[in-house]
Design a protein around this nucleic acid. Structure first.
Lengths: 355, 355
DNA sequence: ATAGTTTTTGAAATCGCTTTCTTGAAAATT
DNA sequence: AATTTTCAAGAAAGCGATTTCAAAAACTAT
């Protein structure tokens, strides 16, 4: 015979526990939720019976009664991207330690799906929604999406990682300007002056800010901005890095250092540089963003900007939870500070040394 | 003022719809579930009102009444591993198209957490559980875990990707033997004979089977098995590949081809080979498993065994759903057939050419 | 037109928990 | 010792769907 599924296996409820412990269901509920005092005698009795049967309160009933699911929805483009995977794991871990669980939806770059899944998360009755990237990270907010998010916010708090004009979303962001500052300081300290920047879309807030800061840093140092060294216009993957870097070589740009918008793009850059017969960091220094395992796995190991995913996830989740609990001390915008992890891919500028 | 949260925003229910449409709640339920006939007049009226308010039935109430959550739990080691990420996305997509959603838990290599999360999934009242890897993939099943899974199976169907002796779990597996056969055939056709195998743990079923087949193929071709060319004993990450490959070089093994247990390990192998001043595929051919984006991104691009994640995910999810629906035509073991994607990292054996 | 069927429909019970309201007992106050 | 205050614990009313059961309505057949 199969296992004892169904039939006699009638799920055990709070009433069963109550009967066996000789108390009322209300009392059982009280020890379960720990929201009211129960005399230690009865409490012990109840706990004992609960353990005896390994009783777990029914989530549906609980959710129905409390109108809370203890779930946070996370909507992102694609967990297969290690950056997002890291963010998810960080959120999951943070959420679990607060008694929440996480529902993950990937829209896989499909704009329509993104909106549909937002709706779906609402169906799931999540208590809050975290929007990682996607529309909520674009420089010019998509009107339709803003409307959808506003609808959502009528019932469910939303936390984003970028910005979404026309909404009152709370935000936990990486300090993108600062992250570029770190990179530029590092490169300047290595005497680099011909610095290229590769990958990413200018209509994404964080990228926009990085490029802004990049130009600003150059100017501050009295260096001119060479448009031939700016290869934004792709995406965040391998081929963007590869193609944009090829483009820079083609235009005759001769950078001594390259900033890749993320580790993915950096890999593309590596390939392009190698195909042009140059070495890293011998001929060209490479620095990237995100510091996923890809940075450590690349050859050479990449100097990369680290976001401290654990902290980022915690900040995101704790903001969400405070919003759920109507804690009005929540700051509307929180920043996560980046740090630079220096590895093998960056070195002193050769051109300068030769002088 | 903030958005209209709370207060007057009293969630709209099936009763509200019923009142406005001039029917009973039962009728609304009937059009919602589509499980009983409703006269087209009333149906239209109800649908109209539902759309007017964009009404979504409360999941908790529905779950409570139906004792079904329409959720599938997925337990895995770590989505940050691209292989698992691909599996998850495949499952998510397959599940969505069947009206299910997926809850993902990562135990991050923590054995105790693995068991705890299994319990937690049960709390979530998922309708079925998919165990990707972990204990349910080990050669010698962990007794304690088997017991835990058996407890789970009393209420919830479980689908695994490996094996778990002492349980009646349904299985959807990759044909590991066949996958090694593909690789060996490929290598033999390129005239390789000194073939190393690197990475992975022998106590993991799929790895065990691969190594078994590896030896078998060698013998069938009249070649001897050289233990110095077998570098299993690590894990599935970069450093395992790197260290095991270094070990092979140290022992004086001079393979003309290397099989890496996954793309991750392959990356380590690449580094080791390069550090030894050798070229791929010039001096050594490299073939790996999983065919994640890492295979396509590596330098050189890796020949890798592809599992067709989409199909795999579909098989996993459809098995789970049929189990949920007590469809007893479900085969206990299903196989997913692998295929070999040949890229830049494999080439004709030089040693042989020289002759 | 009438009796017999088949469909539609609504009332009410149910799913399992939380919570308000009430009561009775215990503790504190005078 | 009498009275007020505090507190533990039970009864019962939700929470918002589904579903059974029985009545009403709509057809069929005679």
């Amino acid at each position: 015979m199969q296992s004892k599924r169904g039939s006699e296996n009638k799920a055990i409820t709070i009433y069963d526990i109550a009967r066996e412990a000789g108390v009322s269901p209300a009392t059982v509920s009280r020890v379960l939720t720990n929201r009211a005092r129960v005399s230690s005698g009865k409490r012990d009795r109840v706990v004992e019976v609960i353990e005896k049967y390994n009783f777990k309160p029914n989530t549906f009933a609980k959710g129905l009664a409390e109108t809370k699911s203890k779930k946070i929805g996370v909507l992102m483009a694609d967990v297969r991207n290690p950056y997002y995977a890291s963010m998810f794991v960080a959120c999951e871990t943070a959420a679990r330690s607060e008694g929440y669980s996480v529902i993950l939806y990937n829209f896989l770059g499909d704009v329509e799906l993104e909106e549909e899944l937002l709706e779906r998360l609402l169906d799931e009755r999540v208590d809050a929604i975290i929007l990682l990237g996607g529309h909520a990270d674009e420089l010019v907010s998509n009107m339709e999406y803003v409307e959808a998010v506003n609808d959502v916010m009528a019932t469910t708090p939303v936390v984003i990682t970028g910005k979404l004009d026309g909404t009152q979303c709370n935000t936990v962001r990486i300090n993108a300007m600062r992250s570029m500052e770190l990179v530029m300081e590092h490169l300047f300290s290595l005497r680099h002056e011909k610095i290229a920047i590769v990958g990413g879309r200018m209509d994404v807030l964080s990228t926009y800010e990085k490029v802004l800061k990049y130009k600003q840093c150059l100017k501050e140092r009295g260096l001119e901005v060479n448009p031939d060294l700016i290869g934004n216009g792709g995406k965040y993957d391998f081929s963007s890095g590869y193609e944009q870097m090829n483009g820079i070589f083609q235009k005759g740009g001769e950078p001594t250092a390259v900033i890749a918008i993320n580790d993915f793009a950096a890999w593309g850059v590596i390939r392009s540089i190698h195909e042009h017969g140059l070495a890293i960091p011998g001929d060209i220094t490479l620095v990237s963003y995100d510091d996923t395992y890809m940075a450590e796995t690349a050859e050479p190991k990449l100097t990369s900007v680290n976001y401290n995913y654990e902290e980022y996830g915690k900040a995101l989740v704790s903001t969400a939870i405070r919003l759920i609990e109507k804690d009005d001390s929540v700051p509307r915008v929180r920043m996560v500070e980046p740090s630079l992890v220096v590895r093998e891919s960056s070195a002193m500028c050769r051109d300068r040394e030769k002088r």
